[in-house]
Design a protein around this nucleic acid. Structure first.
Lengths: 251, 251
DNA sequence: CAGTGGTCTAGACCACCGC
DNA sequence: CGGTGGTCTAGACCACTGC
C-alpha cells in the first residue's frame, strides 16, 4: 500500500503534550478537519481502528469522538460509521439574557412601567404567532424596562392563555413575565430573530428617543412541548443596548 | 436520621425507563434542579455517594455529571465538589454564520467586490483592537458581499500580519477572509457585539441604501491562543438581513 | 453475518483541595 | 491526611446496519 491510511495520518498528528489523551485525540482530529485532509461527509476511522493505531482504550477514543459529535465536528450513525460534519468553524454564539438579571448583574437598578396588561381578541397575525385561531382571547402585556431610570427595553408580549391562565394576576414589578412563564411552562425550544429597525413615533416617545435613532428588535417565540407559550417583541435603543457574545473554539 | 439525604431523594426520582442509565441520572438531577429541591450554589452528592446510592458504576455517574456540567447545569471543582449552577433557562443562543455559506445555503448566488486590500500604519485605536503597538504595519481589507447582486454585507477587517503574513496574497473572490484566517490560525476564542446603527453617507452608497435606513453592526474580535488574529466590522442593511437563532431547553 | 457505535462495569492512578 | 473530581483501562453485552 502506497497510500497512507487515515489513521496513520492521525497518529503522526498526535501531539505529545502532557494533556489528557482524549483531548489530544480530539485536537488531532480537529486539525485533520481544519487543515482539509479529512473533508466533509468523509468517513473517519472506526473506534477499533483508532484503538489499534493509537494503542489507547476504546472508552477513551469513544469519549473523544462523542464530544466531537456534540460539538458539531462529527456525525455518528450506529452500525454505519463516523463522518466529518459540514459547516463547523464558521458559527459562533450570542446569548440573549433576561433583562432584569442582566441589569442587576451590572450592579444597576431595574424598574419597569406596565402600560398594558389585559385580554384581546386575536387578529389573524396574532393568532398565527401563538398557534391559535383568529378571534380567540389572548393575553397581552406592554412593559417598558428601565436601567437606572433610563428606558432600555420595550417588551410587547402576547401570551397563550391556555398555557398560562394566571398570567394577568402577577405583579410584574416583582418578577419579569419571562421568569413567570418559565415557571409555569418549562420552555422546551424557541426561535428568535434579531434585526435593526427605526422606531415609530410612539415607540420613540416611550423609549425617550430622538427621531431616527435605530433600535435592535428581537422577536422571540417560545414553545413548551407542542404549544406556543408566548410571542415577544423586544425593542432596544441602539444607543443604550448592545448584544455581547463570546465564543470558544476547539478546547 | 429523620432528614432525607440528597441522594435518597434522587434515587426516588429515578425513572424506570428503558433509557440508558446515564440519561436517567441526568434527567433525575435536572428534575431536582428545575423543581427547586436542589438550589443554585448548593452542593450535590459526590460521585461515590451516587455510586453507593444508585448501585451504578462510577464511570456512568461521571458521564452524567460531566455532561450536565458542559450543558451548564452544574459546576465542578476538583478536590472540592459539584454544585448547582445559577441562571440556567434564561439564556438562549444566536448563531452568526459565514456570509458566503449562508447565501449558498439559501440557494442564492454570492459575489463580492474588493474595495481595499493593503497595508496601513496602525493608529492608536486600530493597534488596540489587534493588541499591537501604534505605528505597526497592519493589513486591512474592505469587501462588499452581494446576494444575487444586492449588497448584504460590508466587511471592514483589520488583520494581524504576524499571524497571517500571507493575507494580502489571497483571492477573496474564491474564499472569504474568515475562511482563510481560520485555516492559517485556528481560532481559540472570540467576542462579538451586535448593535443597531445608522450608516454614514459612504456606507449608504456602498450598500445601495436610502438614507436613514438602520443597519445591524457586528464587531468581532478573534483570538488564536494569546494573539488577536483579526478585528472585523460587519455592516448589514436592516431591511435585507436578520439574525435567526433557535434554542432548546432541558433535553 | 461481521462491523459499527452505544453503553456499562470494576477496578486503577493521579492532581487537587481543605483540614 | 482523606475526600474530591479527572482520567484511563480491558474487558463486556447490546442494537443497529449493510451485505
Amino acid at each position: 500500500m502506497v497510500e497512507q491510511t487515515a489513521v496513520s495520518q492521525l497518529s503522526a498528528a498526535m501531539s505529545d503534550d502532557p494533556a489528557p489523551i482524549y483531548q489530544r485525540v480530539k485536537q488531532a482530529i480537529i486539525n485533520q478537519i481544519i487543515e482539509g485532509r479529512w473533508k466533509a461527509k468523509q468517513r473517519v476511522p472506526s473506534e477499533s481502528e483508532f484503538v489499534n493505531e493509537l494503542g489507547v482504550s476504546r472508552m477513551t477514543i469513544n469519549r473523544a469522538l462523542r464530544e466531537l459529535t456534540s460539538e458539531g465536528y462529527l456525525i455518528r450513525m450506529q452500525g454505519v460509521g463516523t463522518f466529518v460534519a459540514e459547516n463547523k468553524g464558521y458559527t459562533a454564539m450570542l446569548e440573549v439574557h433576561n433583562i432584569a438579571e442582566e441589569i442587576a448583574q451590572r450592579g444597576n437598578h431595574h424598574s419597569c412601567k406596565i402600560l398594558k396588561l389585559g385580554t384581546l381578541k386575536a387578529g389573524p397575525d396574532q393568532a398565527a404567532v401563538l398557534g391559535l385561531s383568529t378571534g380567540q382571547s389572548i393575553f397581552q402585556s406592554l412593559i417598558v424596562h428601565y436601567e437606572n431610570d433610563l428606558p432600555v427595553q420595550m417588551e410587547d408580549r402576547l401570551v397563550n392563555p391556555l398555557v398560562a391562565p394566571g398570567y394577568l394576576d402577577q405583579d410584574y414589578h416583582q418578577l419579569t413575565p419571562y421568569t413567570y412563564l418559565m415557571r409555569v411552562a418549562p420552555l422546551t425550544s424557541g426561535e428568535h430573530v434579531v434585526e435593526a429597525v427605526l422606531p415609530d413615533a410612539r415607540q420613540c416617545a416611550l423609549l425617550a428617543l430622538e427621531n431616527n435613532e435605530p433600535c435592535l428588535l428581537i422577536r422571540r417565540q417560545t414553545w413548551s412541548d407542542t404549544r406556543i407559550v408566548t410571542y415577544a417583541k423586544l425593542l432596544y435603543p441602539g444607543s443604550r443596548y448592545k448584544l455581547v457574545g463570546r465564543f470558544k473554539g476547539h478546547g
